[in-house]
């Protein structure tokens, strides 16, 4: 079978028939994503923005209420509570995850033959289904008989009531979240192993001590990964749902008790407004506020980290 390939015409800027045929085929390949984007992303975004200005309970047609939902949103103490909890959690969870993961990755980097084994140990909790993690920590955090308070007792510490004292519910959740930091460890380990050895050798020749090597070689060289995990972990923890929902929500025994307030997260509250109380309009307004918050926080992080992140090949 002979195919003719259009010879390139010198000096002509117009697109060749081949290029045009290629472009047509390109859109055949992109078609699933374009359709999916319109139906499941762009369309729903427009729809939820519109719904956020209405009152809608799925059964009756949406009723336009203007800015009512947003006014309620700002005044609603439960929304404020859940947002406060979520921000508090993120502010603790993200730096702790980064710090501990970096420590573990630095340890792992120095392991020889057993590196794979220890990497697996730190990653296995990530494989555990979030519902099982919630159940497991509900019991580990038990005041009298939980493993964690037993361990604290060995150190002579009288452990708090992690799951029943409203003041300790959030720290307990943060503690649980630290168990699943394995993917951040793997990202840092990969970054650490990418630092060129001659940089360390040069630092040694300059007589740099361990701290100077870390501060002036390691940190700048992995700053890209640190920045990346900062953004990804922040976005994810602002949307915390499954573990906490499993522990404190979704059944009559716990719902409405004091800790459903103390453990209320933004997306959990949003989910309940939407699918338990069928306040679809109000929940849509909540979703857009969350989107806005994520955009602002990410923008601030990008702005700030421009000063700290070192990009290879960049002259500074």
């Amino acid at each position: 079978m002979a195919t003719t390939v259009t010879p390139p015409v010198p000096g002509r800027r117009r697109r060749t028939p081949l290029a045009r045929r290629e472009a047509r085929w390109a859109y055949v390949f992109l078609a699933p994503w374009i359709v999916g984007f319109l139906v499941f992303t762009a369309g729903p975004m427009v729809a939820s923005l519109w719904l956020s200005f209405t009152e809608y309970d799925v059964i009756n047609a949406p009723r336009w209420t203007g800015l009512d939902n947003y006014r309620q949103l700002v005044a609603d103490p439960q929304v404020a509570r859940s947002l406060g909890n979520t921000v508090y959690y993120t502010a603790l969870h993200v730096p702790l995850v980064m710090l501990i993961s970096l420590g573990l990755a630095l340890l792992l980097k120095r392991v020889g033959r057993w590196q794979g084994f220890f990497r697996t140990v730190f990653y296995l909790p990530v494989m555990t289904p979030a519902v099982a993690v919630g159940i497991l920590f509900l019991l580990l955090l038990n005041t009298q008989d939980g493993l964690i308070n037993r361990g604290l007792a060995l150190l002579g510490i009288d452990g708090p009531s992690w799951t029943t004292d409203p003041g300790w519910v959030m720290p307990g959740i943060v503690l649980m979240s630290l168990w699943s930091l394995g993917s951040t460890v793997i990202i840092y380990l990969a970054a650490l192993q990418n630092v060129p050895r001659d940089l360390y050798e040069a630092a040694d020749l300059d007589g740099a001590g361990a701290w100077a090597r870390f501060r002036h070689v390691t940190l700048p060289m992995i700053s890209g990964s640190l920045f990346f995990t900062l953004i990804v972990n922040t976005i994810a923890s602002l949307q915390m749902f499954t573990e906490v929902y499993t522990m404190y929500f979704g059944n009559r025994q716990t719902q409405g008790s004091f800790n459903s307030d103390a453990a209320s997260f933004y997306v959990i509250h949003l989910f309940q407004e939407a699918f338990q109380f069928l306040h679809m309009g109000f929940a849509s307004a909540m979703a857009w506020l969350l989107f806005l918050i994520i955009l602002i926080i990410t923008a601030v992080q990008v702005k700030l980290s421009n000063r700290f992140v070192y990009y290879e090949g960049e002259d500074r």
């Binding site: 290629e22 369309g43 729903p44 975004m45 939820s48 997306v267 699918f275 979703a287 990410t298």
Partner: peptide
């Protein structure tokens, strides 16, 4: 493929990763 608007579209693909699930959750349910 090389085609007009490729980088713009690919940027859009990456941008969707930042979109919180909650924003599209309700209309998708509908």
């Amino acid at each position: 493929f090389r085609f007009p608007g490729r980088n713009l579209l690919f940027g859009l693909v990456l941008a969707t990763m930042m979109l919180p699930f909650a924003v599209t959750m309700i209309p998708t349910y509908l």
